[in-house]
Amino acid sequence: MPSETPQAEVGPTGCPHRSGPHSAKGSLEKGSPEDKEAKEPLWIRPDAPSRCTWQLGRPASESPHHHTAPAKSPKILPDILKKIGDTPMVRINKIGKKFGLKCELLAKCEFFNAGGSVKDRISLRMIEDAERDGTLKPGDTIIEPTSGNTGIGLALAAAVRGYRCIIVMPEKMSSEKVDVLRALGAEIVRTPTNARFDSPESHVGVAWRLKNEIPNSHILDQYRNASNPLAHYDTTADEILQQCDGKLDMLVASVGTGGTITGIARKLKEKCPGCRIIGVDPEGSILAEPEELNQTEQTTYEVEGIGYDFIPTVLDRTVVDKWFKSNDEEAFTFARMLIAQEGLLCGGSAGSTVAVAVKAAQELQEGQRCVVILPDSVRNYMTKFLSDRWMLQKGFLKEEDLTEKKPWWWHLRVQELGLSAPLTVLPTITCGHTIEILREKGFDQAPVVDEAGVILGMVTLGNMLSSLLAGKVQPSDQVGKVIYKQFKQIRLTDTLGRLSHILEMDHFALVV
């Protein structure tokens, strides 16, 4: 994948999101292997301009796509893939009243899908469409860049269908997702969380590099694949309309690839034109409109599966009536509230959605109805927002919020430890010299600072030695090549209790 991002070429006709291997024109390309080798690009942008032909009021008969309808489940399912879809609609009884809503608040519980998330729908649909058009064949390999849930859905379907599955996901995604993927037989590649989507090191860039190296491999490409919004247009939206008897006044959905909100909203605009569509985008993402909503100094966020630093091709923002931004604290607070007060075992993005819903639905009156999409299960986040310690460490809970008995030293300040200034190293000294210094002084790690004293990161003896043994660096290389740029900081005025929580999850903390 090139470091400079080429513009994806656009073909003359058809839909841009065809499933299957992508040609340089962004659509299915038939021909000899030699032709494909000559024409197939190194990668295709996940934010390529959409060429979708959908228009409100256009006859369904003019759609270029294969459409399906929700099917009634048999008493005995032939395999677990038949437990994807037909998820329950559940009334939220307490939270709406707590925040003064007059309307009825309903939750579409997508964590009841077989793999635990709304992404099971698009995973199965992308595979079925690729099999139907002859792209996927027995023994082929599926590769997908994902925040985890699409990966789980694909790995689940691949396990049943017999495909090899490789999932490329950023490091910030939970260990629970990784464990589930491994249990399903998927191979996992992790990428830096802070890598831009168009960087060769991003999950998108690495996935395309693997595709170019592995024979008979395919990126189904949830960011561009029409099967993504079509899955929701054909099934999720129809289920909502049936469950609500066609009567709903507002739908609120958090947005990642945009397939969920695009597919549902398009069908609702056709069948229930008075329904307002509300999009939820986390602070630090750029999906919301108008652009002024996205202006923030924050560039990272903890909530998973929603928000991006690019506009995915499948996201149709014209069908969203209003956007709201959400933050991590309210997302996790509301997710825990949904679990504790409503018994809905949902993930953090569901918290984002409901946090926005109780604001947006203030305009609705008694007798009206708001539906929220709860995308995934708490299963993926047992060591994250479900953990009091994690919430404390991230600053989303305060010590006084917890009532468990603490040891005698818990409320003492870090400054009472009488710490001395640490050994520091410059980023320009060599790895070999740094190892000598650390061994001589008896230290395992040291902060790396520039000549102005600005902290650049941390270097550890173990990481340097393993990097040297693996051949990633040489003793003569500058130590700046092996620094940890993500590390926890703590102030002298913070409590030892807070430091204790940090050290339970990290090997060190830097006192500043």
Rank of each mutant, 00 (worst) to 15 (best):
S3H: 10
S3F: 14
S3K: 12
E4V: 11
T5F: 09
P6T: 03
E9I: 10
V10L: 15
C15G: 10
C15F: 12
R18H: 15
P21D: 14
P21T: 13
A24Y: 11
K25P: 15
G26K: 10
L28P: 10
L28E: 09
G31S: 14
S32M: 03
D35L: 05
K36Y: 09
K36A: 09
K36E: 11
E37P: 11
K39N: 15
K39P: 11
E40Q: 13
P41Y: 09
L42D: 09
I44A: 11
A48I: 09
R51F: 07
R51Y: 07
Q55T: 10
L56Y: 09
P59G: 06
A60M: 11
S61I: 06
E62N: 12
P64H: 07
T68C: 11
T68Q: 13
A71N: 12
K75R: 06
I76L: 13
L77A: 08
P78W: 05
L81V: 08
L81F: 11
K82D: 03
K82T: 03
K82V: 10
K82P: 09
I84R: 07
D86N: 13
P88F: 03
M89A: 03
V90H: 03
V90S: 08
K94H: 13
I95D: 00
K97R: 11
K98G: 14
K98W: 11
F99P: 02
G100E: 08
L101C: 02
L101T: 04
K102V: 01
E104R: 03
E104M: 02
E104W: 01
E104K: 14
L105F: 14
A107Q: 06
C109F: 05
F112T: 06
N113H: 11
G115T: 08
G115C: 07
G116W: 07
S117D: 05
S117G: 04
S117Q: 05
V118F: 05
K119N: 04
R125C: 08
R125A: 10
D129Y: 08
D129W: 14
A130D: 07
A130H: 01
A130Y: 00
E131D: 12
E131L: 04
R132G: 09
R132S: 11
R132N: 11
T135P: 03
T135V: 08
L136Q: 05
K137M: 08
D140F: 08
D140V: 08
D140R: 06
D140T: 07
E144M: 01
E144L: 02
T150D: 04
G151A: 01
G151Q: 01
I152R: 00
G153N: 04
G153I: 03
G153W: 03
A155C: 14
A157D: 10
A158C: 01
A159E: 07
R161S: 12
R161M: 08
R164K: 12
C165D: 01
I166V: 15
I167S: 07
P170I: 00
K172F: 01
S175L: 07
E176P: 00
K177N: 02
K177L: 00
V178A: 09
V178Q: 04
D179G: 10
L181G: 03
R182W: 07
G185I: 01
G185F: 02
G185S: 04
G185E: 09
A186D: 06
A186E: 05
E187T: 11
E187G: 02
V189Q: 07
R190V: 08
T191G: 01
P192N: 04
T193P: 10
T193G: 08
N194V: 04
F197S: 07
P200I: 08
S202R: 04
S202G: 03
V204R: 02
G205T: 08
G205A: 02
G205W: 14
V206S: 08
V206L: 14
A207M: 01
R209I: 09
R209W: 07
L210R: 01
K211A: 11
Q222R: 01
Q222G: 00
Q222M: 01
Y223A: 00
R224D: 04
S227Y: 10
T236A: 04
L241R: 11
L241F: 11
C244W: 05
G246Q: 06
K247Q: 15
L248H: 04
M250T: 04
L251D: 01
V252K: 07
V252I: 14
V252Y: 07
A253G: 11
S254V: 14
S254D: 01
G259I: 00
G259K: 04
T260K: 01
I261V: 15
T262P: 01
L268Q: 01
E270I: 02
K271S: 15
K271G: 04
C272K: 01
P273H: 08
G274D: 10
C275N: 02
